[in-house]
């Protein structure tokens, strides 16, 4: 099975404070390090497990500047076969639609059975690229997938995670696109031998012109107006009184906050 995995490099903000920069259009990035989007690691692991089972190839694709190669090399070190990076000023100017268009154009030039991506990006949180890309490639898609079973060479049986611990089980024909939920598997570490081999694996770079895309085709449909900090958290407010009084007040509070 030939699998394409979409990877995104994101600032690692899971454990850090985030602030808005002076343009109000971006976050302050000077003190942040960059890493692979968490959900994309699960998508990559899904691909590598399928490759181990069925053979075939895993191709990584990402949009961004040269720094993104760090993420691609990490994926290659874990066992992907080759990588593609799409780099152009025009890609940076647009929105999720722009990114999906660039990805679709590059992916359509490859032979593939399955396209995977993470279910959500930890930076913008759009959850948008995957199904958008599927629409552009005119293939069926399923979002927030946490189980993939190959039925035969033409079909997958998948579980999708819905709210409240409910799964939606469906069959989807190949070629297809899946966005993979976090926690679906345990992403592997790169071994040192893998790291060594990654250096020799192909990493191709394409710009908009090479993909036959121009500014008009890549124009975004939305734009960021501004970023700002959410309301500041209040300090602990102590509930006082006898155990009974405390319980009364606490019950009201819990009811309100739990939305009962």
């Amino acid at each position: 099975m030939d699998i394409i995995v979409c990877m995104k490099m994101v600032p690692d903000t899971s454990e850090t404070e985030v602030r808005v920069d002076s343009t109000n259009k971006d976050i302050l990035k000077v003190r942040l390090i960059y890493t692979t989007n968490e959900a994309d690691n699960y998508a990559l692991e899904t691909a590598l497990l399928l490759k181990e089972k069925l053979g075939g190839t895993v191709t990584l694709i990402s949009v961004g500047p040269q720094k993104v190669d760090e993420v691609l090399r990490m994926g290659l070190a874990k066992g992907a076969d080759r990588a593609i990076r799409l780099t152009d000023e025009l890609f940076d100017k647009g929105d999720a639609w722009t990114t999906a268009k660039a990805l679709a154009q590059a992916i359509s030039q490859n032979k593939y059975d399955l396209v995977l991506s993470g279910c959500i990006a930890s930076d913008d949180g759009y959850s948008q690229i995957g199904p958008t890309l599927a629409a552009l490639l005119k293939i069926p898609s399923a979002a927030y997938v946490n189980k993939v079973e190959v039925l035969d060479n033409t079909k997958l049986r998948i579980d999708r995670e819905l709210e409240g611990g409910i799964l939606e089980r469906k069959e989807i024909s190949l070629p297809a696109l899946l966005t993979i939920q976090t926690g679906t598997n345990t992403p592997r570490y790169a071994s040192i031998i893998g790291i060594k081999r990654a250096g020799a694996k192909p990493l191709d770079v394409f710009d908009a012109a090479k993909l036959n895309l121009d500014a008009q085709a890549l124009a975004g449909l939305t734009e960021l107006d501004k970023m700002y900090m959410p309301k500041v958290e209040s300090k602990a407010q102590f509930i006082q009184g006898s155990d009974d009084e405390i319980s009364d007040k606490l019950a009201t509070l819990v009811k309100e906050k739990a939305g009962l």
């Binding site: 850090t16 404070e17 003190r31 942040l32 390090i33 692979t36 070190a77 790169a190």
Partner: peptide, 23 residues
């Protein structure tokens, strides 16, 4: 040192690198 450059380290330790840079 080889492993850290490729994120091949326990997640808590990886997170600490991000925390020190940011704060």
């Amino acid at each position: 040192r080889i492993l850290v450059d490729y994120d091949s380290l326990p997640k808590t330790l990886k997170d600490i690198i991000a925390k020190v840079y940011s704060s």
